[in-house]
Nucleic acid binder design. Sequence first.
DNA 1: GGTTTGACCCGTT
DNA 2: CAACGGGCCAAAC
Length: 106
Amino acid sequence: MDSFNARVYRAVAKIPEGKVATYGLIAGLAGSPRASRQVGWAMHGSPRGLRLPCHRVVNRTGALAPEGVFGGRDVQRAMLEAEGVTFLGDGRIDMRKHLWEPDVEA
DNA sequence: GGTTTGACCCGTT
DNA sequence: CAACGGGCCAAAC
């Protein structure tokens, strides 16, 4: 699996609990920081067998994906809160604290 | 092999 | 401060 989306799956799977990564960040780990759109598309077409923490992947503003993807924004928010992620009053993630920083990633 | 799309990002109006 | 458009990249049709 040398496909770009394959690397996206692996990068997303590396996201530790209690943290969140932006599409742009995942795209960067995949090899193309500008292919942020591809990241989201890759997850939508990702194999159901894999349990990718797609709920930990959010856009740059910290806003969650549109409804209908996870079954509702509230669902995704609940999953993140259950992992220890804090949210702002606007319904956005506190990127300041939970933005994943891949420094010495394996 | 060309066209369309897509869970985005950034700048401008 | 909110809305609109253009740009990028990679996969599906």
